[in-house]
Amino acid sequence: MVIAPMDSVDLAPVTSLQQDGWSDIRVAFSRYVEEPFSYPIKVDMDNQLAGVGATIIHGDVAWLGHIIVSPEYRGKGLGKLITETLVNIAKEYNCQTIYLLATALGAPVYEKVGFVTETEYMIFTDINFPQETLETSHIQPYKEDFRQGISKLDQETSAENRLFYLEKFLKDALVYLEENEIEGYYIPTLENGPIIAKTERAGLALTKLHLRNHHQLIFPKENRCLLHFLSTYGYVANSSCKRMRFGELKPTKMAFIYNRIAGYLG
Rank of each mutant, 00 (worst) to 15 (best):
P36A: 10
P36L: 08
P36M: 04
P36I: 12
P36H: 13
F37H: 14
F37A: 09
F37M: 08
F37I: 12
S38F: 11
S38P: 02
Y39L: 06
Y39I: 02
P40V: 04
I41M: 06
I41K: 07
I41W: 10
K42Q: 10
V43W: 07
V43P: 02
V43K: 04
D44Y: 13
D44Q: 11
D44V: 10
M45R: 14
Q48Y: 09
Q48L: 12
Q48N: 12
Q48S: 13
L49P: 07
G51R: 06
G51D: 09
G51Y: 10
G51M: 08
G51W: 03
V52M: 14
G53W: 00
G53L: 01
A54Y: 06
A54V: 13
T55W: 01
T55H: 04
T55Q: 01
I56C: 11
I57T: 04
H58R: 12
G59R: 10
G59K: 10
G59W: 09
D60K: 14
V61L: 03
A62E: 03
W63K: 04
L64N: 10
L64V: 12
L64F: 08
I67G: 05
I67W: 00
I68F: 03
I68C: 07
V69G: 07
V69I: 15
V69T: 12
S70P: 06
S70Y: 06
P71D: 03
P71G: 02
P71K: 08
E72V: 11
E72W: 07
Y73L: 06
R74W: 09
R74T: 00
K76N: 11
K76E: 15
G77T: 08
G77E: 08
L78W: 02
L78D: 00
G79V: 05
L81E: 14
L81I: 12
L81T: 14
T83N: 11
T83E: 10
E84T: 13
